[in-house]
């Protein structure tokens, strides 16, 4: 089966994000970049499915030439080839889903796996937009029942299971107050939640091999997509700081404050 996986370039989740004094964006200096963690989980899941069912994992990223780093990362993990949509400047989710729709129509994958959201703009939209644009089924927030580090991990049923006839995928999703299971006809869209799997590290041979794997270059113009944003970020600001709290000496002092000052107990 052919699986298309996204690989967005985002700020390292461990970095400290600061807003520029004029509110026009975030301070770029000193930031490190990574593949969006949810997308990395998508790459891992794609590789596991292909290991079981044969086929290939094609990874796609949109951005300037720097996004090739993230594509190479996915290729080093084991993805077979990459598609790079070369574009600089702001993009909204309508445009991103529009570009991905064209890539999907060109590649004709059986399954598209995306991170449920990217950790920069936290919109959680592209997978769902893409599913609607394509008229495909969607299973968002694919997750596992057990903890990633638990004993059960090795033996349990994976969250994504392709049907014996290769025509459906069964997905366990994390929703409010429980787990929902859906069965989507293929081709379908799946978005990943945090606990779907633990992505592998790229091996040294993997990193060497990735250097010679092909990256195809496309552009919004070539794909015929108008990417004028319909979402404008007018201003960014730091969240309001909480007023400095105090340290209390002991539990009776704490209870006194909670009862008489905060009035919450």
């Amino acid at each position: 089966m052919k699986i298309l996986v996204t690989a967005k370039r985002v700020e390292d989740p461990e970095s400290k994000i600061k807003v520029k004094p004029d509110g026009s964006g975030i301070v770029q200096e000193g930031l490190k970049y990574k593949i969006n963690p949810f997308d990395e989980i998508g790459v891992e899941e794609g590789l596991r499915l292909v290991a079981k069912h044969q086929g290939e994992v094609v990874v796609v990223s949109i951005g300037g030439k720097e996004v090739q780093e993230q594509l190479r990362h996915a290729l080093a993990m084991g993805a077979h080839r990459a598609v790079w949509v070369n574009h600089t400047g702001p993009l909204d989710q309508l445009a991103i889903a529009g570009l991905l729709q064209k890539v999907v129509e060109k590649e004709k994958p059986d399954l598209v796996i995306l991170g449920k959201q990217s950790i920069d703009d936290d919109q959680n939209q592209v997978g769902q937009y893409l599913a609607e644009f394509l008229g495909w089924g969607q299973a968002t927030f694919a997750s596992k029942v057990e903890s990633l580090e638990s004993e059960q991990e090795k033996n349990k049923v994976p969250a994504l299971v392709v049907g014996a006839d290769g025509k459906t995928v069964r997905v366990i999703r994390e929703v409010d107050n429980g787990l929902a299971t859906l069965e989507c006809q293929l081709p379908a869209i799946v978005t990943t939640d945090l606990r779907l799997n633990q992505p592998r590290y790229a091996s040294l041979p993997g990193i060497m091999k990735a250097k010679s794997k092909p990256i195809e270059e496309l552009t919004p113009a070539k794909l015929g997509v108008d990417v004028t944003p319909a979402i404008q970020v007018l201003k960014m600001s730091a969240p309001p700081a909480r007023k400095a709290g105090i340290k209390v000496a002991d539990v009776p002092a704490l209870v006194e404050k909670l009862h008489n000052e905060a009035k919450v107990v």
Binding site: I17, I26, D120, Q232
Partner: peptide, 20 residues
Amino acid sequence: ITFNRPMWAGNVFAEVKLTT
């Protein structure tokens, strides 16, 4: 009308305008 929403895990608040 514009909307306030969090970005970067709540480290940034953004004011956004939707033009559709």
